[in-house]
Amino acid sequence: MVDKAIELFDCGHRACGGCGAALAARLVMKGAGKNTIVVSATGCMEVFSTPYPETAWKVPWIHSLFENASAVASGIEASLKMQGREEKVVIMAGDGATFDIGMICISGAFERGHDFTYICYDNEAYMNTGIQRSGATPYDASTTTSPSGSCSFGNKLPKKDMPQILAAHGAPYVATASIAYPADLMQKIEKAVRTKGPCYVQVHAPCCTGWGFEGEQTIAIAKLAIETGLWVNYEMVDGKVSKVKKVVRKPVEEYLKTQKRFRHLFKPTRQDAEIAHIQSIADKNAEKYGIDIKLKKE
């Protein structure tokens, strides 16, 4: 067991107040422990934590580029192996670095089976460059490159299923987690880091600035994502779903209404068809992962 009281991500970083990714960084490091080398991809987390010389990282940390973190980690792992060293390698990358531009390096690294843990903190867009859409942006979210408008409801594409893609590479451990459930998140990280081979944990990390809500709501919104079935927390061991967080589901509207990126679905007029479509995404998730808790009627 790692000592979760140790803070390995320091104060003084420049994340927005209430940033989900900053909380993710803290919690991930608590789960990973201090015998860890972190590889960051370019993005909000890298930028808010390491303007020279003010690093927030208390563990060895390296950043090279936006799209090569898993290749850099491959080299580090190979080097550690050759030196007979025991440190664990943990990648911290945003959804853009993971779902989009880093895919070739990620696929290669997972195929090769390096012993590392890849953590995607998923804030569902390219936040560092000003909230552009990524392959992780949910359906109908308005971003600066998928804006809602008189003939658009925002992002037209569904969220890519990265966990399944990496499970299909043979990753021994794949999990989704959320900053709203810190204990579960830390436990999953610890498990991933302990598991030999390339593991993947995708952490839902709401971004107040990019999604349009007050920083104090970060956890409440992350919880709503799970309670509506739009985000599912689960584990996959050797490609099989083994543990799923079950909920008494709420209508997706309750989640959508909290964020400016979905405001066009309610104002100036309510877009019933679009909301129904998003509800169908949640329903499919619920069915696929069996998240519904059935309440007994009295």
Binding site: S64, A71, V72, S74, G75, I76, A78, M82, G108, R112
Partner: peptide
């Protein structure tokens, strides 16, 4: 006696060398 990484691209090749070099190996 070397670890020979069969990478997915030249981009990954040099990135892996970068990581290995930073971790303390001749690459």
């Amino acid at each position: 006696d070397a670890d020979y990484i069969t990478v997915d691209s030249e981009f990954s090749a040099l990135s892996a060398c970068l990581g290995a070099s930073a971790a303390g190996s001749r690459t």
